[in-house]
Amino acid sequence: MLNADPREAARYLGYHRTQPDAAVQALIEACITEVEAAAVPKSTHERFPLLFSGDETFLVASLHLKSRSLMRNLAGCDEVYLFAATLGIAVDTLIKRAALMDTAKGAVMQAAAAAVIEAYCDEENEKLREEAQSEGLYLRPRFSPGYGDLSLDCQRDFLNLLKAQKNIGLTVTDSGLMVPIKSVTAIIGISSTDNNCHLQGCEACSKSECTFRR
């Protein structure tokens, strides 16, 4: 059980401050249960020193990243975790199947799966936080390619570095999309100072016009 939040799924479905009616609420909860049953969640991470090379460019092992927003996020960090997680391919099939039989259920299943992967990432992120804490270190909010001005182009090198295909079955298409669909990659800064920043996910992103913003 991943404790996925039905409210998170509702938000992906466009409910902002409104509570879904009973039928939709029941459907959301049923879909979360189905996603959790089908999912084979897996994650992998590796810890690397962070090298700033100026001009908003970073070097993590062989990975070059250029982003102003990430620069802000990683200020004061000497190391990072590269992190990747996926719910597995059976969830892709589950969503497709639901959509084929009933469009409403398909849309809700999609949102439920998004809530489940977020919950799973939170859980794994927490383990990393504890690991860092035991060394007297602090973590920055996780930051994913696609947030702010960090381009998706880095996905292939990012996943190669983590051997994500072999370790957790996470692949990337030639157009930079991840398969299985319900997957997350993120950079998590490691710092010796706590910046008391609790912005996570949406709030850490600078895309204020995004439809799905919390």
Partner: peptide
């Protein structure tokens, strides 16, 4: 008008 949401729209469509 934001009075109904996507799942309701789709349930109606179905």
């Amino acid at each position: 008008q934001g009075k109904a949401f996507l799942p309701q729209l789709l349930m109606s469509a179905e």
